[in-house]
């Protein structure tokens, strides 16, 4: 019996969201557009009962994520962290996130940080995925975020960041060098 498989609306959304995030991480600094609200759409295509996550001060969002089957945990233990880092106190909590081990650097956290693109701190990105260099203006993230990130990342150890502004997303893998202009 020949069965035709047609994607459901969810299939289309998660596949597109993943593709956007894949290209965003492959080309740091380029802005991708997710099919729907940024954080939720991104979480939908990645999280399931094999994952742990942490949400900063957003109970409804946390409740939505629990429906994926993923478990909620403290920031130092989890795979995915969602939140804003707009004060230096919040940024300091980053020092506890998982950065992997030399044997398994992939065993590390991924951050989804809410931000605004187009104004604010100017960043100059270099590294894999960037042809020469690219500049990006980010607001809504405390400026100390970038120096703390730089402190924590001991490549290949580190964490990966997605900046999310509405449905727009920018990927910043640990391999990207960020210079604050």
């Amino acid at each position: 019996m020949q069965v035709t498989l047609t994607p459901t609306a969810t299939d289309c959304r998660t596949n597109t969201a993943f593709e956007v995030m894949m290209w965003a991480l492959s080309r740091p600094g380029s802005i991708g557009t997710l099919p729907g609200d940024g954080m939720l759409t991104a979480a939908e295509c990645l999280l399931d009962n094999e994952c742990t996550f942490h949400v900063q001060d957003d109970a409804p969002f946390q409740k939505a994520l629990i429906q994926s089957g993923a478990r909620c945990g403290p920031m130092s233990d989890v795979d995915y962290i969602f939140g804003d880092f707009n004060t230096s106190a919040k940024v300091q909590t980053l020092r506890t996130v998982r950065t992997g081990t030399l044997q398994y650097p992939d065993n590390s956290a991924t951050l989804f940080v809410s931000a605004f693109f187009g104004s604010g701190t100017h960043l100059r990105l270099t590294g894999p995925g960037v042809a020469d260099h690219i500049t990006l203006a980010v607001d809504g993230v405390d400026p100390s975020f970038w120096s703390v990130r730089d402190d924590i990342i001991r490549y290949p150890l580190g964490f990966d960041v997605y900046l999310v502004d509405g449905d727009q997303v920018v990927g910043l893998p640990r391999s990207t060098k960020i210079e604050v202009l």
Partner: peptide
């Protein structure tokens, strides 16, 4: 979803 998570990590750490 598992493959997606791993593929993103693979991009973040090229060659690992």
């Amino acid at each position: 979803r598992e493959l997606r998570r791993k593929m993103l990590k693979a991009i973040a750490i090229p060659g690992y």
